[in-house]
Design a protein around this nucleic acid. Sequence first.
DNA 1: CAGTATCCTCGAGGATACTG
DNA 2: CAGTATCCTCGAGGATACTG
Lengths: 147, 147
Amino acid sequence: MTAADNDSISAAVEVIGDRWSLLVLRGVFRGLHRFGELRDDLGIASNLLTDRLGRLVNYEVLEKVPYQHRPVRYEYRLTESGRALSPVLVAIMQWGDSYRQDPTSAPMTLVHAQCNAPVENITRCTQCNEVLDAQHIRRADHRTSTT
Amino acid sequence: MTAADNDSISAAVEVIGDRWSLLVLRGVFRGLHRFGELRDDLGIASNLLTDRLGRLVNYEVLEKVPYQHRPVRYEYRLTESGRALSPVLVAIMQWGDSYRQDPTSAPMTLVHAQCNAPVENITRCTQCNEVLDAQHIRRADHRTSTT
DNA sequence: CAGTATCCTCGAGGATACTG
DNA sequence: CAGTATCCTCGAGGATACTG
């Protein structure tokens, strides 16, 4: 067994470390909930969309909610666990905007619905509230990494 | 062209929407900088590690820094753009801890080096500073999504 | 030690057609 | 409309051997 197993990042990677899964989630966060909406928006093959939606439902990130009967049709809604992925998506989007954005297209800004002001994703100290970058973060209960 | 192209998430997904790339990055954030360290830690095949390191260097997320001459040997360091991925990794780790963690293994806590207190990744409003979840975030300059 | 070169296999991905 | 079923192809992934 290597360090690639059994930690919280690799556990999360099973769910979101996949191009289509991440793009499907982005779509659901954007308000696309139905199969056809997602398929048309993403340009994903239907068998792949079926697969990804099924996986996300299995991981309890999405849940199927019937929106019509006879025939029954489901839409895909974020679960609590799915909504908790919001900071991940925001962090990714923010990084993409800053470092990977095609300069010709405008960045996609997210705002606080009440204030109408931009949101930002940060990592901060729960004690002093300071915004932290990688240099000021270390692993707890671990002899300082000597490797 | 579909919505899958040409936005900041799909731009970022090219870099990190891949299991091994993300795990390599995690390793570098943890202080593993040399080829052999990463290979042994991740259990990744050497050709794949070569490929992923090369891609991350191309994306200017990592850079090669010589640490020895005759023969010259390089180690892989985060660039500014790479360090800026810290919130993404922290957000992913935090989510994995909360929702995907194998209950038998302890979560991997990150702390502020000065305070020794745990860090947290959040999304907040740049104006009122409130911590925001998905329900309070919307896209700017966009008729409110009616779909 | 830090890769490069080769080879093989399996399965992801996509296209297309079909169905309750 | 929301999938399921099939089929095909290509390339990612891994193992192994080799090299400056």
